[in-house]
């Protein structure tokens, strides 16, 4: 998109919608805002139709606040809950057919690097467990085998929440759901190990209990994807409707699951590790100056 497209032509301020004017004046475009300043600037996401207390919506809110370069980012999504909020943001959003996000992102990233050879354009895929590991499994895996340079984020609610509660490959074993009354017979797929084996250079698993850590993980995944290869984040984002979690307990549930099976985990190749160490050293030096 670029900053030139964001700016309002002189004289037109009073005709533009209030939200847009706020976004240009108090939004994060062209500034490096910290995720801990959320609530003190105009966020990229607007009001969205996701359920009350949805922690997938929370993850998406933090995701947009954490983007290192929002004006040069393109987000891809697919059918599922996440697209309801993803499409309400001031960042270009591509909505593919179910499961083809990673194939579209591969082409998009290659095209952008030919069209804008002197600029960094980030491509980020955010889709649910159904879109990436069930229906889009082949395309997700092949984009990793080809070592395409973009970030894949799986917002895992462990169910097909949009269509009434069918089991997905990521639902835990033995769990009964509204449209899966016999209980799931197979184990939850280990997406993190799959990503490591398939050639991702940065892999993380996270539960949304600490905004600073989510932001750091997302930033790292995007920066690593710019230079080295595919990166993957597996985020637990509960479905409070299908799992019947009272909305007040949603954060408590995220904290509980973090202790059980979503403990923070981060893995990267040696060259990526060196890159981040170098980057952090430079940042510290700048702070000292």
């Amino acid at each position: 998109m670029g900053l030139e497209y964001v700016r309002i032509s002189p004289g037109f301020e009073k005709y533009m919608p209030r939200d847009y004017v706020d976004l240009v004046k108090y939004g994060p475009f062209g500034k490096q805002l910290d995720v801990m300043q959320m609530g003190q600037f105009k966020e990229l996401v607007e009001e969205h139709p996701m359920c009350a207390g949805c922690y997938m919506a929370y993850f998406i809110r933090v995701f947009y606040a954490a983007l290192p370069n929002p004006e040069d980012t393109i987000v891809l999504g697919t059918a599922g809950c996440a697209r309801l909020a993803l499409s309400q943001a001031a960042v270009p959003f591509v909505y593919g057919n179910y499961g083809d996000t990673n194939a579209v992102a591969s082409g998009l990233k290659r095209a952008l690097s030919i069209r804008f050879p002197d600029k960094v354009k980030d491509v980020v895929v955010i889709a649910g467990d159904g879109g990436l590991i069930d229906i889009g499994f082949g395309m997700t895996m092949h984009s990793w085998f080809r070592r395409e340079k973009f970030t894949t984020i799986m917002v895992d609610n462990e169910v097909y929440g949009n269509t009434g509660g069918q089991e997905s490959g990521m639902s835990p074993k033995g769990l009964q759901l509204k449209m899966a009354p016999l209980g799931k017979k197979f184990d939850k797929i280990n997406a993190v190990e799959l990503a490591k084996t398939a050639g991702c250079v940065y892999v993380a698993r996270i539960s949304p209990t600490n905004p600073k850590r989510i932001a750091k993980t997302i930033r790292r995944a995007i920066l690593a994807a710019r230079h080295f290869g595919p990166t993957f984040i597996h985020a637990y984002t509960s479905c409070n409707i299908e799992y019947s979690i009272p909305t007040r307990e949603v954060l408590a549930d995220a904290r509980k699951r973090e202790k059980q099976d979503f403990k923070f985990y981060e893995w990267m190749t040696d060259e990526v590790k060196e890159f981040f160490e170098e980057l952090e050293r430079k940042e510290k030096q700048e702070v000292k100056k």
Binding site: M36, M38, G39, Q40, E43, E47, A57, R61
Partner: peptide
């Protein structure tokens, strides 16, 4: 500011630095 950081809705809970409150 902890409530502001954990709200799932964008710009719903905000922080006012003038009064130092959400």
């Amino acid at each position: 500011k902890q409530c502001v950081l954990f709200c799932p809705e964008p710009n719903c809970l905000n922080f006012k630095s003038g009064t130092n409150s959400a």
